[in-house]
């Protein structure tokens, strides 16, 4: 099942106002993504690791997420040291390993991991519904936030429908292999998912019309912006500004 594994908890980050978290996460990611200074980036990684520790998430789960995300970075480590122009520090057969290449790959690794860790600490500690609710408060277009609500709501339904179809295939002895029969079966499976989703979307819209939908979602319970949220926001933003100002 698709689960929001990090969204449950009662740490500092779980209690923080999602609006503050979204703004801080955005600012942090942009700063880390465009920066080329080692001091800033190492500082950013340090802060991100502390943030994840403060959020008290399951270490095993965090590491397994990082491993998956770093697979593309691993590919870069295999290529960049050989293709980046610069001083040769070691020769492997006919290939030279350049110092600049290694430095560059290291820079990317630090950048990438600090942004991912900050995302885990700041964004994944809220439920999707709370994040989308916060986006509405931050004046995102109505239709876009409605898409987020519906899409997230139906991911679970469609995923369980997929599992049901897949079980039906297994019961009938289907073994996926590299052949046309397998691809045809999967194509029909996707086709069936599309047909059912299409029918479902019609039912959903009719149900909405019955309940008087006129193109607007009403928010019933609003976030309360506490003093603590304000202080935390200011402190985190000053940390990020501090990172930029590092020598």
């Amino acid at each position: 099942m698709i689960k929001e594994k990090f969204s449950e908890g009662d740490s500092f980050f779980h209690k923080l106002d999602p609006r503050v978290k979204i703004i801080v996460a955005l600012l942090f990611s942009v700063i880390a993504a465009v920066s080329d200074k080692y001091t800033t980036l190492i500082g950013a990684l340090f802060i991100a690791v502390i943030a994840v520790a403060v959020a008290r998430l399951r270490t095993k789960e965090v590491i397994s997420r990082l491993l998956v995300v770093n697979s593309f970075i691993f590919l870069l480590w295999l290529m960049l040291p050989f293709t980046f122009p610069g001083k040769n520090i070691y020769t492997l057969g006919s290939l030279g390993i350049s110092q600049e290449g290694i430095k560059y790959a290291l820079l990317i690794t630090i950048k990438s991991n600090s942004i991912i860790l900050a995302g885990i600490a700041l964004l994944s500690t809220s439920s999707i519904f709370n994040l989308v609710h916060a986006l509405r408060h931050l004046h995102f277009p109505d239709k876009l936030t409605q898409l987020f609500f519906f899409s997230y709501r139906y991911i679970h339904t469609i995923h369980s429908e997929y599992i049901r179809l897949n079980n039906a295939l297994k019961i009938r002895g289907f073994k996926p292999q590299t052949n046309l029969h397998t691809y045809k079966t999967y194509a029909y499976l996707v086709g069936m998912m599309l047909v059912r989703s299409y029918d479902r979307s019609k039912r959903v819209y009719n149900a909405m019309l019955c309940r008087g939908f006129k193109g607007k979602f009403w928010t019933l319970n609003h976030f309360v912006f506490k003093k603590a949220d304000f202080v935390a926001g200011i402190v985190m933003i000053s940390c990020i500004v501090g990172l930029v100002l590092l020598p």
Binding site: Q146, L147, F150, S151, Y154, M193, L194, S197, S201, Y205
Partner: peptide, 14 residues
């Protein structure tokens, strides 16, 4: 909105 959102979920699940 419902059609686009639900096809977006299909894209996610796919």
């Amino acid at each position: 909105v419902p059609k686009v959102a639900i096809l977006s979920s299909v894209f996610f699940v796919a």
